[in-house]
Simulated assay, not measured.
Amino acid sequence: MAATPSPPVFLNRVYGLAGNLDTQSFYTGDGQTRRSSLVSPDAGRPYVTLTFAQSLDAKIAGTGGQQLALSGKESMLMTHWMRTLHDGILVGIGTAINDNPQLNIDFPHRYHLPRPIILDTHLRLPIDCKLFNNYKAGVGRRPWVIASASSVDGDESRASRKSSLEAAGARIVEVSFLGAEVRHRNCIDTVIVTVAPNLVGKDGIGYGSNLPSDTLPAMRHVETVLFGIDAVVALRMH
């Protein structure tokens, strides 16, 4: 078995962590919790990192939301180390369906595995996705599916999808506010963006072009580092 690569000190500087990340990320099992290395300045919420990869022309997906392999192996390795510092990874159902992500780490299991959390209003997550396969194989944690407590389709159909997801291993968390516009300007602590040196073109899916100027948060640049051929930019919100 190949040796596990060392964690990048870039993450120590971005998150203000002392010591070796290798000693801060031990896996404790799916049903257990641990004290996170990252502490939010707001006691009412967890520490949140917004992270994604983009092309030079600010595209995050291909035509129709098709998955793009943007991150190189060096920046992806950094991303996996970053995952060990977080208790969960949250994605939307569009990403879960289009990309079929694993949302785990490519390291031995003595490192902390984040919890996959999927925003899935109508319980559309496929039961044959990699998240469930990883959980059954013991290489991923039990997925949590955040769904709407109210249903716009037939109760029988929804009940059947819920039962199938639970049988596959999901924990269904029903909330009443999905589908409504929810704003919270102070819910993100750090932003880490991987910029790949390629262009996607006008048919790709971009972001940010319709954001009202008066709602954009103030961000402070922390550091920009090259990982392989990718530029990784770290920003802090507070």
Rank of each mutant, 00 (worst) to 15 (best):
Y47Q: 06
L235K: 00
R185Q: 13
A58G: 08
T51V: 00
G31M: 06
A218D: 13
V232H: 03
G204N: 00
D120M: 12
A159H: 04
K130L: 12
T28E: 15
V139P: 07
N100T: 09
V175Y: 10
A149P: 04
G64Q: 05
L123M: 09
L165P: 04
F227R: 03
F227G: 06
V91I: 11
D203N: 07
V152Q: 10
H122C: 15
F52Q: 13
P212I: 00
Q32D: 15
L165F: 00
G16D: 14
V222P: 11
P101H: 10
N20S: 15
S163D: 15
A96K: 09
V233K: 04
T215P: 07
I93C: 04
G94K: 07
T95V: 00
S160W: 05
A196L: 06
G206K: 03
S25W: 01
S157W: 03
M237Q: 14
T49W: 01
G16K: 12
R220G: 02
V193W: 03
K162H: 11
V193R: 00
L90D: 05
A218H: 10
N12I: 02
L85Q: 11
Y207V: 07
M76W: 00
L123W: 03
A58P: 05
Y111S: 09
A69L: 14
G92C: 11
D214S: 01
A18E: 15
L70F: 00
S25E: 07
A231G: 02
Q66A: 15
P7I: 02
L17M: 02
A168P: 10
Q32L: 14
Y47H: 11
R115C: 12
S176P: 07
F107V: 09
G228A: 13
R236M: 05
T79I: 01
F132P: 04
T63D: 15
D189W: 04
D57A: 07
D128G: 08
G140I: 00
K162G: 12
K59N: 13
N133A: 14
N98V: 09
E166V: 08
E166R: 14
L131S: 02
S157P: 05
E174I: 08
G204D: 03
Q66L: 14
K73N: 10
E223D: 08
R142P: 09
L165G: 03
N20T: 07
L131R: 10
G204K: 00
D155E: 15
P126K: 06
I172E: 02
M82D: 11
V193T: 01
I89S: 08
H112I: 01
G179E: 09
A149T: 04
G94W: 09
R158Y: 13
S157Q: 12
Q102N: 10
V182A: 14
V39Q: 13
V145M: 06
